[in-house]
């Protein structure tokens, strides 16, 4: 389904929800979250359920006791009657993931936190989104997204070296998990290529092409989630893939 067109908004098969697969969604900002029914396309809701299952699995497995179970997802809106994917019920602005003992606070700008552990946790959540939603826009993408992660899913998620969003995310991963020291500018060049190769060597990702395969891109996101929730560098190699 296209996100542009004659009418600024509307859904074909609307799904009303105040929880994603049983996990509450709360609209607002820190100190002001309210559980409220929102809407999206039913197909997109199915993607959200899959996304949250995956996020929970990895945060449970690698995040320790503080990340057992997600208490709620904070957000700034799904369907909103405006041009673009929000207007078609195909997008969600996520601004918090709250576990029992810790949170990923996109609203507070965790991507730019002075604490590496916080940045890695943000990147793990970021990766969980990219595993299911091709157009994931994070705090590195532009100023509009420093307080939330936008996800929409109108094409299959495969990495693209021409995508500012994808490349910026990869550069941030290489910096935070393998000390690459590359500029996060969304532009793929020789330094980013070297950082990419070194990171994959370090955590043992090889034989797959995330730029051509949806499965490979998802597996690379699994590496980021595992290391991010575990707060481990790439060299710790805490995740093993049967595929890549």
């Amino acid at each position: 389904m296209s996100c542009s067109g004659a009418t600024s908004c509307g859904m074909v098969d609307r799904k009303d929800f105040d929880a994603i697969g049983g996990t509450p969604v709360r609209y607002g900002s820190p100190g002001n979250y309210v559980r409220r029914t929102i809407s999206c396309e039913r197909s997109f809701y199915g993607d959200l359920v899959d996304w949250l299952k995956s996020l929970k699995y990895f945060s449970d497995a690698f995040g320790g006791a503080q990340m057992n179970g997600v208490d709620f997802i904070g957000h700034a809106g799904a369907f909103v009657c405006k041009p673009g994917c929000h207007g078609r019920g195909l997008a969600l602005d996520i601004n918090r993931v709250q576990w029992a003992g810790v949170a990923c606070n996109m609203f507070g700008g965790d991507h730019a936190s002075g604490t590496r552990r916080v940045r890695r946790r943000y990147l793990a959540v970021d990766a969980s989104c990219r595993k299911f939603f091709k157009y994931t826009l994070d705090g590195w993408y532009n100023a509009q997204h420093t307080n939330h992660i936008h996800v929409d899913g109108h094409t299959r998620p495969v990495f693209d070296k021409q995508s500012v969003s994808d490349v910026g995310f990869i550069q941030a991963v290489c910096n935070n998990f393998n000390g690459a020291g590359v500029t996060v500018d969304g532009s793929w060049g020789p330094r980013t290529q070297r950082a990419w190769d070194a990171t994959n060597d370090a955590w043992g990702f090889n034989g797959c092409n995330p730029f051509g395969s949806e499965v490979a891109a998802a597996e690379w996101c699994n590496f980021v989630m595992a290391h991010g929730f575990a707060d481990e560098g790439a060299s710790a190699s805490v995740y093993r893939s049967l595929l890549c």
Binding site: C9, R36, T37, I38, G77, F79, V80
Partner: peptide, 26 residues
């Protein structure tokens, strides 16, 4: 209106401003 919402149409009707709004559940 609480939550996400967007105005979609407005006009003067019978001398008063009438506004139409679509909320977060359409």
């Amino acid at each position: 209106i609480e939550g996400p919402s967007a105005p979609v149409a407005a006009a003067t009707v019978d001398g008063a401003t009438v506004l139409v709004v679509v909320d977060g559940v359409d």
